[in-house]
Each structure stands twice: as structure tokens, then as C-alpha cells.
């Protein structure tokens, strides 16, 4: 009945061992906040963010755009006021989310995304983008596709490591954030820092693209659970008692 976005086999050429293609365990709680339009508490390993979204809401006159919605992102660090680094993250997240949103359907409005960092143990940007995507999904704003962000580093031994925790990331030489869309797995955003060889970049991209499928599968599962819980009311079907808002996932390997 439904053609899902093409199921690319996670590692078509078998270039990587399953040990390499491992993301930290992903957990999520939907709508922990009551006052926002949609919110998500998203964790990847020990990295944790709380994202919420409002929209489409009233637009400030200086941001008014008569052709499309204005997208804004507010990133709050764990302590203190946002630094320049946080402002840069804000821009990356905003531009990434804007490319996934169908902003033309809501002209003269604002779609606002708030991100509160709760714990940064490496890969906070990727975690924030994934959390923001989930919040937008359940917020009911129209989107072209879903997005998945994967963090990747070149460690001190010159090896490419996918989604490391903070222990593995000590002395890293470079770090990458890749964001893919759910349609063709095309790159939406690349954000890099540090020094690396082109071959390492290509390796990291291939690994991240393969691993993004894990995140897309996770989206589908958690959204199914969410809707089975909240929309089964009118049906006479037996309720899915196992559907809980909190989906506990085992460590996800491919």
C-alpha cells in the first residue's frame, strides 16, 4: 500500500564491519512539555537534548516574509548565556531544519524551534538536529522529508569513528556532522572541523549514510507507537498496550 522511502540495504557493498556501523543507543520521550506545540526529549548515549517547537505562530514584523514561513532556532547551553559557538550551532540547525520544512505553505508566520542542551557528551549538534526533527514531526508542520544527523570523528590514531562517546573523542583530529534526507539519502548539511584527508571524509560520509538508516527506522517506530497510542480511540480495534511514549531501545547495531 505505502511505498516507504526506498530501503537501501544498510551496507550494500559490505565495506564496513558491523562493529564500525554502530550508533550509541537512542532513546526518546515525546511531548514531555505541556505548553509547547510539540516537544521531544532525545538522547544518544549520554548526550541529551530537550527540543520543542511552536508553529506556525505570529511573526515579528522584521522577520515577516510574504512568500514563506520564517524559521528560527534558539539554542540554550546547559549553563550560562549562549556563546558564539552556540550561535553557530543555532544557525546550522536552523538552516538544516528549514531545508526539510515546506515553509511555502505557511507564509507570514514563524516556525520556532527551541533546543535546551541537557548533557553534552560528544555529538550534541547531531543529537539536537535529530531531536528537532522529531519535534517537528509530531508538531504537524508540513515537511518535505525527515532528516537524520550523524556525528563522526577522526580519532587520535587517524581512524574514522562513527558516533563516538566523549572518551573516544579525546584528542580527536577532526569531526564531521552529516545530515541526510529520507528520500534518496542525499546530503542536506555537512559541518566539519579539524584537519582530515579527503579519503577520510569520503569514508566518514559513507559510514554516516549507512548509519542514518538506523535513525530513520527509529523515527518510524517511535511515530508509529505515538500514533497508535493517541489515535486508536475511534477504532474498535484492540489497543496496542505495548505502545508507550517512551521507547526503550537496545543498543542498536546493524
Amino acid at each position: 500500500m505505502v511505498t516507504q522511502t526506498e530501503n537501501v540495504s544498510i551496507d550494500p557493498r559490505g565495506d564496513f564491519s558491523s562493529e564500525d556501523l554502530k550508533l550509541r543507543p537512542i532513546n526518546c520521550e515525546l511531548n514531555p512539555l505541556t505548553r509547547s506545540d510539540a516537544s521531544a526529549l532525545f538522547t544518544q548515549g549520554d548526550t541529551c537534548v530537550l527540543t520543542s517547537m511552536l508553529g506556525p505562530v505570529e511573526v515579528k514584523s522584521q522577520n515577516l516574509n510574504i512568500e514563506k514561513a520564517h524559521v528560527e532556532c534558539i539554542y540554550r547551553p546547559k549553563a550560562g548565556i549562549p556563546t558564539i559557538e552556540d550561535k553557530l550551532r543555532e544557525n546550522v540547525i536552523r538552516d538544516t531544519c528549514e531545508s526539510a520544512l515546506l515553509t511555502v505553505l505557511h507564509p507570514r508566520t514563524t516556525i520556532s524551534i527551541q533546543i535546551q542542551e541537557l548533557d553534552n557528551r560528544c555529538g550534541i549538534e547531531a543529537c539536537a538536529i535529530n531531536g528537532a526533527c522529531l519535534a517537528l514531526l509530531i508538531g504537524g508542520v508540513p515537511m518535505k522529508f525527515t532528516i537524520a544527523a550523524v556525528h563522526c570523528i577522526v580519532d587520535k590514531d587517524d581512524k574514522v569513528v562513527l558516533d563516538p562517546d566523549h572518551c573516544k573523542a579525546i584528542g580527536k583530529r577532526a569531526s564531521f556532522i552529516f545530515v541526510f534526507d529520507s528520500l534518496e539519502k542525499n546530503l542536506v548539511t555537512v559541518h566539519t572541523s579539524g584537519r582530515f584527508r579527503m579519503a577520510q571524509f569520503n569514508d566518514a560520509e559513507c559510514m554516516s549514510r549507512a548509519a542514518s538508516q538506523i535513525i530513520f527506522n527509529f523515527y518510524r517506530r517511535i511515530i508509529s507507537n505515538f500514533h497508535n497510542k493517541s489515535l486508536l480511540t475511534a477504532d474498535t480495534k484492540v489497543r496496542n498496550t505495548e505502545a508507550e511514549t517512551v521507547v526503550k531501545s537496545e543498543p542498536m547495531d546493524v
Binding site: 500500500m1 526539510a100 514531526l137
Partner: peptide, 14 residues
């Protein structure tokens, strides 16, 4: 019919 769909999916039946 109770399929859950995500943005970007195509509805081939339609």
C-alpha cells in the same frame, strides 16, 4: 487501514 506514514513517503495506491 491504519498505516503510519512519515513525510517523504509515497502513496502508490493513490
Amino acid at each position: 487501514m491504519t498505516e503510519i506514514v512519515l513525510p517523504g513517503d509515497r502513496i502508490s495506491a493513490a
